[in-house]
Amino acid sequence: MQKNVISQFVMDVIELGSFVNSPPHGFTAERRAGCTLVKWDQEKSCVFIDEIQSSKGKVIFCNSPGREITVRTLGECTDLRRQLTSKTIYILVSACSNTKVEEKTNREVPDLGYYVVAINGSHPMIKWEMERGLDLTISSVAGESYTVDVDVSAALQGWVGENFHIIVDAEKVKPVWKDTHFTIKYRSDALFDFPYWFGFSKRQFKVCFNNSAGLSDGCIVLRV
């Protein structure tokens, strides 16, 4: 892929089964008994996906730290920031129907399935949003622990638009997106980290953009 094409890539939404069956560039999927191992190029991607029990078996993204990333030094924090703003970020989201999003159930797989969201952290618009959010939420006070939720729901909804539907039993279903975040945990060794112990160190920011930047807002239909 040419460099100018890569720079224009902002976001993609891929059904998990399609992702595993036809892995994108930099990913490979190896089927084992009862599970699928997904390997990826760590030089180009940040994968924040936990082990998944899908409708077709277990899916494991090798070397992924999962949805929660823990850093313990400012050096690790700086390195994570560099990765988030220079690589493609992959997280797993759940698609649910409006009628079932609040329904309590023992099913492990959401009723509309899992989707992998890919976000180009090096795209100028995403990079600016990510850096701004990190600057606003991560304290420079030495010795303070904190937890930051990076929520991509606004970016996801802005990308797919209002006309996005999933076809289920020949009917169009507008999904409600859940689990649209990943978490950065900074853990200090300070013994008297009162904000953390009293729950005052939790922060959140949303990564978002609007289609006025020239992004398509046309109808996108995914099939499951």
Rank of each mutant, 00 (worst) to 15 (best):
residue 124 P to A: 03
residue 80 L to F: 07
residue 117 V to K: 00
residue 51 E to V: 09
residue 148 V to Q: 01
residue 114 Y to Q: 07
residue 207 V to A: 00
residue 169 D to C: 10
residue 183 T to K: 10
residue 177 W to M: 15
residue 189 D to F: 15
residue 67 R to L: 00
residue 188 S to F: 02
residue 68 E to D: 04
residue 120 N to D: 03
residue 171 E to P: 04
residue 121 G to F: 05
residue 210 N to D: 06
residue 206 K to L: 03
residue 137 T to S: 05
residue 131 E to T: 12
residue 24 P to M: 08
residue 185 K to V: 11
residue 2 Q to T: 10
residue 137 T to M: 09
residue 35 C to F: 12
residue 60 I to A: 00
residue 197 W to S: 05
residue 211 N to E: 01
residue 141 V to L: 10
residue 192 F to S: 09
residue 13 V to Q: 06
residue 120 N to E: 03
residue 158 G to Y: 02
residue 147 T to G: 02
residue 49 I to H: 00
residue 9 F to S: 09
residue 121 G to H: 06
residue 113 G to D: 00
residue 82 R to V: 14
residue 56 K to S: 01
residue 185 K to E: 05
residue 54 S to L: 03
residue 90 Y to P: 04
residue 179 D to W: 08
residue 218 G to D: 08
residue 71 V to D: 00
residue 71 V to G: 02
residue 33 A to Y: 13
residue 184 I to Y: 08
residue 36 T to Q: 09
residue 166 I to P: 06
residue 151 D to K: 06
residue 134 L to S: 06
residue 52 I to D: 00
residue 207 V to C: 02
residue 165 H to C: 13
residue 215 L to A: 04
residue 67 R to A: 00
residue 97 S to V: 10
residue 180 T to F: 12
residue 82 R to W: 13
residue 146 Y to H: 07
residue 150 V to I: 10
residue 178 K to Q: 07
residue 27 F to L: 14
residue 46 C to T: 09
residue 147 T to R: 11
residue 68 E to Y: 09
residue 28 T to S: 10
residue 148 V to N: 00
residue 166 I to S: 04
residue 206 K to M: 05
residue 159 W to I: 10
residue 39 K to I: 11
residue 63 N to A: 03
residue 45 S to D: 11
residue 161 G to T: 01
residue 194 F to E: 04
residue 14 I to C: 07
residue 21 N to C: 09
residue 134 L to C: 06
residue 30 E to F: 15
residue 118 A to F: 05
residue 162 E to W: 15
residue 39 K to M: 12
residue 222 L to C: 07
residue 4 N to C: 11
residue 47 V to A: 00
residue 159 W to L: 05
residue 43 E to C: 09
residue 22 S to C: 10
